[in-house]
Design a protein around this nucleic acid. Sequence first.
DNA 1: GCGCATCCATACGGGTGAGTATGGATGCGC
DNA 2: GCGCATCCATACTCACCCGTATGGATGCGC
Lengths: 205, 205
Amino acid sequence: MDYKARRSGYHTVMDSSQKPERTRLTAEDWEVAAMQLIADQGVGALAVEALARQLGVTKGSFYWHFRTREALLQATLERWEQYGENEVLGQIEQIADPRQRLPELFRRVAHEIQPHRVYAALLKALDHPLVVPVMARVSQRRTEFLHTAYREAGLPPREALNRARLTYAAYVGFLQLNFTLGLPRINHEEFDAYVEHMIATLIPA
Amino acid sequence: MDYKARRSGYHTVMDSSQKPERTRLTAEDWEVAAMQLIADQGVGALAVEALARQLGVTKGSFYWHFRTREALLQATLERWEQYGENEVLGQIEQIADPRQRLPELFRRVAHEIQPHRVYAALLKALDHPLVVPVMARVSQRRTEFLHTAYREAGLPPREALNRARLTYAAYVGFLQLNFTLGLPRINHEEFDAYVEHMIATLIPA
DNA sequence: GCGCATCCATACGGGTGAGTATGGATGCGC
DNA sequence: GCGCATCCATACTCACCCGTATGGATGCGC
């Protein structure tokens, strides 16, 4: 989650939370801001003039860096997809004992915040043609990861696949119900109990 | 799923799948058409002029029946919420053996189609302020229903609640992944196997 | 310090869709 | 069959937002 900070070029920047930041922008800056805006207000709120105001410039800037609004969305989605690749999954694969991997994965994923805000926003934008293929690829990969993890944990292949689907569905559903929908706003200890219940229920002993 | 058919007033109608239907419309007609459109193309596609064309009239008609576009959405959502109330849940409660209820519920829900199309569309519209409270209420009620069902099936209260949350999350996530997202488009027998796997995994023996 | 490429501001065109105003058509009460 | 309420058509206004055109500012090469 280092969405912000870091510039590509020659000019440095102190911190992106100030208005009178009179530096020139790069395409990356726009993508970062776009991702932030998506996390906050959803894909539908991604308007170029709004983004421009937020960045302290005008549309003229935007259309120098991007050909169209869709192009920005595309680039932002690619960035998100690529970033999320070996973010958690890579670390998990380094755990020696396969039976330790799944519970550890559950616990780690459960305590992330920012990536989930983007993910939840993208789930709400599944009518947009550009996000569908991205989400399809990501879901596919993650489900396959769970599939092999469950096999390594001792489940027979077919059962492992269904368990993987079930697990990932529960994950996605939880995001929808507790993030975007602000249900009874489950508190910390209760949440931890829920996670442990998931582990006990879904992961074979 | 009797969304269509039925009129309130004095004039009857043959079948709502014909163009030259030169009868006057009621507010209910608009709501029914709106729900159908939401199921097909999502809440975002709910535009009054589009709906008017589909119904063979113009905006002039619409703004006689409704004060605003939001009013139509509101009415349609209320109609959906009220309809979906005792649709499945009522039947399930009549099953004598509590241990039979959950597997039966799973199997029945798994083979519904049309209500799920609306539900999935609404899940994608969770950024809209009007749908959030509706979905919150519905989710709350259904989760509570699962909660008591799990208790009656023998689970201790706390565990029953978490299991209910897990179950409902899996349900919602499945809708997202397999309806709106068109993942590998799981076929019939494979789907049935998945449902049975869910039953075996989530419902206590 | 001149000149060119980079980056941005200003101003405009154009499409879309919500909401309004107003008059016309239709059917029912009586 | 007159009159009134119901329902709808037509013709607007207005706001929003994407995209374009074009000129101005800034900084780097040399």
